[in-house]
């Protein structure tokens, strides 16, 4: 990738020092990020597209990634940081292998999501927003996923489970943990 000439001196870290940090020190991850940047750096308003892709393929947009993107796009890190913190989809830290999202839309809320969250908290020992210590499951509360006719809804990654009762939670969590093991085993 060609590095554009800097119109003004950027403070902050150089490419060299950024490349020593995770995930940029991993050639595979760096290749993915570079490829995303390459294909969208000329798109008008491409920053959102780039960050969305990084989020979905790397799983998070940490400080080193933000600085790296800022260098390549020749924008201030603050502009990128501003975008990251504005939208709830971007995370700055790695999340668990599976993400358990509880829909807090109106229909789900009335349908009993709070009880489901209580049950999951009890079973996993982590509150919403946290990841289990083994890095397997992240519990999150999210906005309406638009499946209100099946309220309350739990979303595991992109798979949707509707009409979940608190009594069904243990089985659901067992399935999720099992799928984690299957994925790492295979």
């Amino acid at each position: 990738m060609t590095i554009p000439a800097q119109p003004y001196p950027l403070t902050g870290r150089s490419f060299k020092s950024l490349e020593k940090e995770y995930p940029l020190n991993d050639p595979l991850q760096k290749a993915i990020i570079d490829q995303i940047l390459q294909s969208h750096c000329d798109t008008p308003g491409g920053l959102m597209v780039i960050l969305n892709e990084i989020q979905s393929r790397i799983g998070f947009v940490s400080q080193p990634i933000q600085e790296y993107v800022a260098r390549v796009l020749n924008t201030p890190v603050s502009a990128i940081h501003g975008v990251i913190t504005f939208y709830s989809f971007f995370t700055t830290e790695p999340r668990g292998e599976r993400i358990l999202k509880f829909c807090m839309g109106t229909a789900c809320y009335v349908g009993g999501t709070p009880q489901l969250v209580d049950k999951a908290t009890q079973l996993l020992g982590v509150s919403p927003g946290q990841t289990t210590p083994d890095g397997k499951i992240t519990v999150e509360v999210c906005r309406c996923v638009g499946a209100c006719s099946q309220a309350p809804v739990v979303v595991v990654d992109e798979q949707m489970y509707g009409r979940i009762r608190p009594s069904k939670m243990p089985a659901l969590i067992r399935d999720v943990l099992k799928s984690c093991e299957d994925a790492s085993g295979g």
Binding site: P44, G45, G46, L47, M48, V49, L51, N52, Q55, A79, G82, V83, F86, Y87, S88, F89, F90, C142, R143
Partner: peptide, 21 residues
């Protein structure tokens, strides 16, 4: 694609978001 911000349904916010801000 948006990134999970409700206010982006407002037209001027939506435009800002498409512009990458």
């Amino acid at each position: 694609m948006g990134a999970g911000a409700f206010v982006c349904g407002e037209e001027t916010a939506l435009i800002a978001s498409i512009e990458g801000r």
